[in-house]
Design a protein around this nucleic acid. Structure first.
Lengths: 126, 126
DNA sequence: TATATACTTCAAGAAATATTGAACTATTAT
DNA sequence: ATAATAGTTCAATATTTCTTGAAGTATATA
């Protein structure tokens, strides 16, 4: 039996987040929102996309909690979108944990002809 | 016209990386490879996947440089897969740059009724 | 009340991805 | 040489995701 440590991040959650972000339009929207741009119409103009498409992509970012919505106090027809800093920070941390290069364990094939071979490096040290 | 700083990471490259990683099987494979597990057959057993499927998913990780291949010196039929630490570190850095919460600029709608409104916080400071 | 505006939701088709089974390559053993 | 083993590539199908246009909400103006 092979011993493998469990991943430091929930893989199902990580996959959903990555899938939500792995899209050119949504990355562009996220970037613009980080820059402070907000309403649907403006995103649509900047990215040359129809309002319903913007709405669709933004809703995916909203469902994952990364983007928040707020109605204009003066004119409730206008809606502003903003990045949720806390959620972004959480995601950033989760990525770092999983994709941390320090997690890579030394190469030691557990199958094939070299399966049971003790690494020579370890022997020559002592 | 709206001034927006360019993204700190190439969005086309970032999207390709995220898309390659946004898959449950590939995340599992990547995790196992970080744990030191190597050959196709072993990955297939652990993840209950056929060798051709493993091969397909590993090839996607290999094309992005994240996984490397090496033939067994004793028996060339066996192939071992390993994570490229340098490439992983690069990716990690690129993610951090783009998804950095510190990049979020203060909210200031440039469209709608509040378009030209000067933020009150700035006024009350002086 | 009727109309306009900003945005969202729905349904259908288009495009991209994932999976499967079979054929193929490279290497080793008999 | 022949057969076996480990892995890859190919072609077809299944599945998911993206885009489009139309219909639907919510809010505001005339």
């Amino acid at each position: 039996m092979i011993e493998t440590a469990p991943p430091p991040t929930n893989l199902i959650a990580l996959e959903k987040q990555l899938k939500a972000l792995a899209n050119p339009k949504r990355l562009q929207i996220l970037h613009l929102l980080m820059e402070g741009v907000h309403c649907n119409c403006e995103l649509g103009e900047l990215l040359d996309m129809s309002p319903n498409l913007i709405s669709h992509h933004v809703s995916i970012l909203r469902k994952m909690g990364l983007v928040e919505m707020e109605r204009d106090v003066v004119d409730g027809r206008w809606v502003y979108f903003a990045v949720n800093e806390a959620v972004l920070a959480e995601f950033n941390q989760a990525y770092q944990l999983f994709f941390d290069p320090a997690r890579i364990k030394p190469r030691r094939p557990t199958c094939g002809p070299q399966a049971g071979v003790v690494p020579t490096a370890v022997i020559t040290v002592n």
